[in-house]
């Protein structure tokens, strides 16, 4: 027999930790924003993002992508640590013990509340060793100059660092579709570096996301 008294014994029934009205707090008059744990949040104005793209392009040209990717890696590493800490504290269990669906929903809500767009993960290529992330309304794409190649290197870096730490494997991440090129959403493919090399070449050729995924999944 189920005892309801036992079910509510802990007295806490957690909901959405990352709900925007609860998570983002601050003193707007002082220009301070913090999350519900009291850690400072940083607002990145569009102008700053545009200037980063333009500045990197002017200073180092194509190498700008590598710089942003490495910034993203660094960011993602710390993001993973904070995400893990906060989720652990609120839900009372570490990420590794969380159910998949619960973990995914936390990550999606967290991503959205930070204003990074709407994230979704596709596990259809899991058997082949790839994980696909889809991001809609990415601010990193919205502020990027229009070009012929995907430009959200910072996001790719964040995703690569985050999932590398989560899985304990060194995962690389490449972007295969970009809103800045008129695509409906950003696509990112994660996998071990060696296996993604071919995809980078196909990307250079100008192949689209679905062709790249098709080829990757048939390549042994």
């Amino acid at each position: 027999m189920i005892s309801v008294a036992d079910l509510v014994k802990d007295s806490k029934l957690p909901g959405n930790y990352f709900a925007p009205d609860a998570y983002v707090q601050g003193d707007y008059e002082l220009g301070l924003m913090e999350n519900r744990k009291g850690s400072r949040l940083l607002a990145l104005p569009d102008t700053l993002l545009q200037a980063i793209y333009a500045g990197l392009e002017a200073e180092i040209g194509q190498a700008g992508g590598v710089v942003l990717f490495n910034c993203g890696r660094w960011w993602g590493k710390n993001f993973y640590r904070r995400f893990n800490e906060e989720v652990n504290e609120y839900y009372g269990k570490p990420l590794t013990q969380m159910e998949m669906v619960e973990f995914l929903e936390c990550l999606k809500q967290c991503w959205k509340t930070h204003g990074w767009g709407v994230l979704d993960l596709d596990f259809n290529y899991y058997q082949q060793g790839f994980l696909v992330a889809q991001v809609k309304n990415s601010p990193f794409a919205a502020t990027a100059p229009e070009g012929k190649k995907p430009v959200c290197f910072a996001e790719a870096g964040i995703l690569s660092a985050f999932f590398s730490q989560l899985t304990g494997k060194d995962l690389h991440c490449i972007q295969t579709a970009c809103e800045s090129m008129g695509a409906e959403c950003n696509y990112f493919v994660m996998g071990v570096s060696d296996r993604l090399k071919a995809a980078e070449a196909w990307l250079e050729e100008g192949q689209d996301h679905s062709t790249i995924m098709e080829r990757l999944s048939h390549k042994t």
Binding site: G15, N16, A19, P20, D21, A22, E99, M100, V101, E102, L104, E105, C106, Q109
Partner: peptide, 17 residues
């Protein structure tokens, strides 16, 4: 909106899964 944001948005996928 309190109910929507704080609970329902987050809980729905779990129930479906």
């Amino acid at each position: 909106e309190f109910l929507q944001r704080r609970l329902l948005e987050w809980l729905t996928p779990s129930i479906q899964a």
